[in-house]
């Protein structure tokens, strides 16, 4: 088995060495799809733990971290060999996480346990567990590394955690079932999507108040079908992309005016997104159509759908 994996790596490596590679967690298949973005196709499917959801890469791009929610662990995958090389003590039911900007530690939301677990990656030890709201979900670290934001789906809040003290500094009430929190690159705002509220709240991370609320309308769709989840900002913060779940669309938002300037039709039940490092493409995971859509960021156009496993949940693109 090990030799087979090594052989496959040898076969794939020459092709992928220069190209970006995307890794997609397939929640239903217990696998990760490895997608070559030159060929625009899935080149390998990697079995991982049960119910893989959140996925990210270490800062140096050498390792992939995956929340295996039903195995109550975070698996470490070597990006070069695509072999599972260890795991992190995530606490029960890890769903998503965020790396500190310095590359360590890792902040994990334990959905079943109302906790944030802070993990030191080199020693694979738990540094702290911080009680938060009911069903913690989204995690974000501010660009200056001083603030960690966690959303709680049933408490309906964005909780602000201080990096140094590891204490909760504030909690901001948002609309129903907040899923994802993302800071702008300049750190001036944190955006929080409310899946059932159907809105994105723009929060001032210093004053801890909601300064804007963005609502969405899609012609021909009822308000209930518009369920914002994933959020991404372009590197210059001028444009935001918001995944609208069962509305099967990505909203493109002008961050100056908070207006939706375009809706891009993608696959079914779109949740998470990731840019390629050159920002040329944005990838979206479409849970019900078992594929990822590739958006050309400059032209705001969907250029390709790539088949992956069942119920694709999260996506990360290798920085190499």
């Amino acid at each position: 088995m090990k030799w087979a994996a090594f052989g496959l790596w040898l076969a794939v490596a020459p092709v992928t060495a220069l190209a970006y590679t995307a890794y997609v967690t397939n929640e239903r298949d217990n696998t990760i799809s490895v997608v070559d973005l030159d060929q625009m196709k899935t080149v390998k499917t990697l079995p991982v733990g049960q119910r893989p959801r959140g996925i990210t890469m270490t800062k140096d791009g050498s390792q992939i971290l995956v929340c295996a929610s039903d195995d109550d662990t975070i698996q470490i995958i070597d990006a070069a060999t695509l072999r599972i090389v260890g795991d992190l003590p995530s606490g029960p039911d890890p769903e998503t996480f965020a790396l500190h900007v310095s590359g360590n530690p890792l902040y994990v939301s334990n959905e079943d346990d109302n906790m944030i677990t802070v993990i030191d990656i080199p020693t694979r030890k738990v540094l702290a567990q911080v009680p938060t709201g009911v069903e913690p979900e989204g995690m974000a670290v501010s660009p200056d590394g001083q603030t960690i934001v966690n959303t709680s789906e049933t408490t309906n809040m964005a909780h602000f955690l201080d990096y140094r003290t590891r204490k909760l500094a504030a909690a901001v009430l948002v609309d129903a079932r907040p899923r994802v929190a993302v800071f702008k690159h300049d750190g001036s705002e944190v955006w929080v999507s409310s899946e059932l509220g159907g809105t994105v709240s723009v929060i001032d991370p210093v004053k801890h108040v909601v300064t804007h609320k963005i609502a969405f309308q899609v012609q021909g769709l009822r308000a209930e079908a518009i369920q914002p989840v994933g959020i991404r900002f372009t590197a210059d913060d001028s444009t935001a992309f918001v995944a609208l779940g069962p509305a099967n669309r990505i909203a493109v938002i002008d961050t100056d005016t908070y207006k939706v300037k375009k809706l891009l039709l993608v696959g079914q039940r779109v949740w998470q997104m990731a840019f390629t490092p050159d920002q040329k493409y944005l990838l979206t995971t479409n849970g019900l159509s078992n594929d990822i859509s590739v958006i050309d960021v400059a032209n705001l156009d969907v250029v390709k759908s790539i088949q992956v496993g069942r119920l694709p949940w999260g996506v990360v693109v290798s920085p190499k």
Binding site: G133, V134, T154, T155, M157
Partner: peptide
């Protein structure tokens, strides 16, 4: 108990 968790912050 879920309410109380939220109540902590309110």
């Amino acid at each position: 108990s879920d309410n109380a968790t939220t109540g902590r912050f309110m």
